[in-house]
Design a protein around this nucleic acid. Structure first.
Lengths: 348, 348
DNA sequence: ATGAAAGCGCTAACAT
DNA sequence: ATGTTAGCGCTTTCAT
């Protein structure tokens, strides 16, 4: 038995920091009989070490059950491999596909997603920013564009790549992938007018982007010489119930509505449901258009016409940009307009 | 001009690390004329410093636009204030409320959420674990229980608090908040039988938890002396379309179904939609029960009976546990059964 | 291809 | 209440 030699005159380790007890890269290196830095290279840049060493390190890792400490690595290399995403809410299904694609694309390249919820209120976005920047992510993906000047300043100052999404903007902070909400509103208005609908209505969430669609829709209707559009605003996130109530209200008073543009598919489902409950036939008496083209839209009865947005493509683009920046690659385009498509189904 | 003195014998600062250029706590401390650790305390434990110093540090922070570096803090204190959550998918709406509540509860206490997607396949869960553990979160929230023995071992070994959710299990890894899927299945079968329905059917996702509900449902039906339950399995995540197809298939062959238990509200909406398309009256000819009691269930026409799960409560409980552990507080109960409620509406 | 030294920015432990 | 010192675990820079 080899007892740890009680070295008589060793400079006694005065302070003892508990040191989490976990196995570190140094332990791996010792077992593999190499310097720590070599073990590091064996894991991060395997081509830089001999196959022999690579092998020994791999064995040591397995033997000790080593799991790298990314936090330490991040501090030393100033690259956290963490990407922050900010969404208004997780409760609606709208941002799911984008987040899913984002998470997956990032995971595939060794990055991890940090999630923040801003609510639909700008003030909370600012508070979140501190929490996020403090974690030094390699990128920040925003849902919508950053409006608050204070927020913009902070983001610019911290030097972290920022991707704004779900919108277009004349002056992006940094990178931007999205589509034009105004275009959507116009397209839907023209679409309905072209099908002979004159008395249009819109039910929209009270968030900024829904309102831009709503306003463009109304303006386009006016330009087409249609009667005043009937508008109902409902709290975001939107619900089926709000959709039902909107149609109920329109039916209760005022001129009969011939077509409704809903700022979400859920609202549209509400309108469809209320129409069915009232014996209003869709699309004969009432045309309905949703927004988002969620999974269920195509299979409703009647199938729901909707505006399709490619959330997954947005997520993938954002991931690509962030990783490219982190790896120091040049970025060709800094703004991508993904557009949208108006899918015509039997509800119109 | 001062040229860099070619110091003949100075111990030349040989290495220069670029040091990210950001303002650090040391800069703040210098400006406030205190030691770095004092500045640290002024920010983290304000009661430990004099109001005067607190004030000076606050001014310095503002003047320099300092944002703390959590990564460095995490390394030094072995507390990352990061919590990892693993969900099968973000695409469905099912986990939204839990994640939302979790994120919010954590944010309120200075913690941030890291998100991982496992898919519905166990193998990916293992790979994710490495990425997560490597980031040294202060807690890991799992959707469902961890089955893979390898995964269990890793989680146990790393010493990070783990909360399993959305399920009950005889041998929780650590902490567990959920409900019994078997109980749900039984309750729904009894509920339908009590209303005189005899020919039952179930359409269920092919994930493990849906199947446990399905199986308990079938067993209970058998025990009640009902005819063989008709079962259709569909891929998770479940869709409206799968629901429509299931009902269509039942109508096409075999004895007429009198009641359906769907493993999600979306499936139920599909069944409702198909029933309406076929002129099958709900609840007269067909009773329908969903699962999840999502927002829209109550406002469908007919209103959907469903099994209500309190996802937000799960999120809050998980957050509470993780933070308690991180702050070193004792934990009273390590298992919480949140139960469920069967909400009866007009679809039955 | 491998290694030695020096930190990254912060905080725990030990003073005073 | 404040300061000194010594790291946390890793990777950079420079040297061989």
């Amino acid at each position: 038995m080899v007892k740890p030699t009680d070295s008589t005159a060793l400079p006694t380790p005065k302070r003892s920091r508990r040191g989490s007890g976990a196995v570190t890269l140094h332990d791996v290196a010792r077992l593999a009989a190499v310097a720590p830095i070599t073990a590091s290279r064996a894991l991060n840049t395997p081509d830089q070490v001999s196959p022999e060493v690579r092998q020994r390190v791999a064995e040591a890792v397995a033997a000790l059950g080593y799991v790298r400490n990314h936090q330490a690595g991040a501090l030393a290399s100033a690259r956290s491999r963490l990407v922050a995403a900010v969404v208004p809410t997780l409760s609606g299904p709208v941002f799911g596909p984008m987040l899913q694609a984002l998470t997956e694309a990032l995971a595939g390249q060794g990055y991890q997603l940090m999630l923040g919820q801003s609510g639909y209120v700008d003030s909370r976005e600012d508070a979140l920013l501190d929490a996020i920047i403090g974690r030094r992510p390699d990128g920040i993906v925003l849902t919508g564009v950053m409006r608050s000047p204070e927020g913009r300043r902070r983001l610019l100052a911290c030097g972290i790549p920022v991707v704004e999404t779900w919108d277009l903007s004349p002056d992006p902070l940094d990178l931007l992938v999205g589509f034009s909400h105004a275009e959507v509103g116009r397209a839907v208005a023209r679409f309905l007018a072209a099908r002979g609908r004159r008395q249009l209505a819109v039910v929209a969430g009270d968030d900024e982007r829904s309102q831009r669609r709503e306003q463009a829709f109304c303006r386009a209707a006016a330009e087409l010489g249609l009667p005043q559009v009937r508008v109902i605003r409902v709290p975001a996130p939107t619900t089926l119930q709000s959709g039902r109530r909107a149609l109920a209200q329109w039916c209760a008073e005022g001129p009969p509505v011939e077509a409704v543009f809903c700022s979400s598919d859920l609202l549209a489902l509400g309108v469809l449901t209320e129409a069915q409950a009232r014996g209003l036939s869709v699309p004969q008496a009432l045309a309905v258009v949703g927004f988002g083209d969620q999974d269920f839209a195509a299979d409703l009865n009647p199938a729901l016409s909707s505006v399709r947005i490619d959330g997954q493509a947005m997520g993938r683009q954002a991931a690509q940009w962030v990783v490219d920046r982190a790896e120091g690659r040049a970025i060709a385009e800094r703004v991508v307009d993904l557009g949208f498509s108006l899918i015509e189904r039997s509800s119109t």
